[in-house]
Amino acid sequence: MVRSLLVRGMIAGLIAGLLYFLFAYLFGEASVDAAIAYEEQAAAAAREASNEAPLVSRGIQATIGLAAAALIYGAALGGVFALVYSAVYGRIGRLTPRETAAVLALVGFVAVIVVPFLKYPASPPASSIDGTIGSRTGLYLAMIIFSVVLAAGAILLGRRLLARFGTRNATLLAAGAYVAAAGIVGYLMPVVAETPADFPATVLYQFRLASFGGQLVLWTALGLVFGALIDGSSRRSGSRPSIDPASL
């Protein structure tokens, strides 16, 4: 059963990754190109332009490179999503499979993407200092881990409050507790402010909008497609979400 959910999660993730690629290619690549143009201009002005050929051409990076990253990311994320779904289904209220998938996608998007993005937003090429990649990576990962742990804690809290406050109020209280706790953690985490003063503001804005929009597309597609894939199979095999082994 977990195996079949995992397969469905990865299929849903591949579809979500494909949609992500289309969105990122159409709306994100222009700002990546503009950031690289700024980078080359700045390097030329400092007379440190390198003569060595790039390992991978811009044309490859923007097309099959981006597609490969999107599909692998989508499939892997979909697999993790399915594993989490396997562990939480039937344990958060009386939600149906589709509802559980939708709630999980919403909570995952907020905890893994939105909250870390508010503190350490995606940054276009040439807007960060090369030497701080280690600390920036560490802080970004730490922010995701804190956020996910707090979200899990909020769900457990909501479950405990359910009997006393009812579904709606317990959900609101848990969400409020998460926002407050994540806000405190975000406030305490070190600031990263490395964008050069002359980095074009419109490029930064367009890049971050495209980055955020792409993740919104990806998580929405993941939740809906995964929900549809598991719902169809649970209907065929009766009321339970169990999946007929013969269907695979």
Binding site: L55, G65, A69, Y73, Y120, P124, P125, T137
Partner: peptide, 15 residues
């Protein structure tokens, strides 16, 4: 280099 654009757009820290 191959997955570079995806890295930036997906939100991972890069250069």
């Amino acid at each position: 280099e191959f997955v570079h654009d995806g890295r930036h757009l997906l939100g991972f820290p890069c250069h």
